[in-house]
Amino acid sequence: MSEIAQKVKGIIIDKLGVEESEVTPEASFTNDLGADSLDTVELIMEFEKEFNISIPDDQAENIATVGQAISYLEENVK
């Protein structure tokens, strides 16, 4: 697992209070990990802070699963 993927999982476990085993690539923040709309906003903000990037709203809307977050960040973090 990449360093980015590990950090992403760590943030999700911390913010959503879920078990590591639940944080699979297919897991949806809202459907599987119990996040509400505010939790999702907070997750995106944490990714921005951790990786020092800015994720535009229209792209943030497409980040709904663990896997989508990891691939977005692997592509965009320099």
Partner: peptide, 9 residues
């Protein structure tokens, strides 16, 4: 502005 979404509630 990087206010936490839970700030207000």
């Amino acid at each position: 502005p990087r206010f936490n979404p839970f700030f207000i509630p």
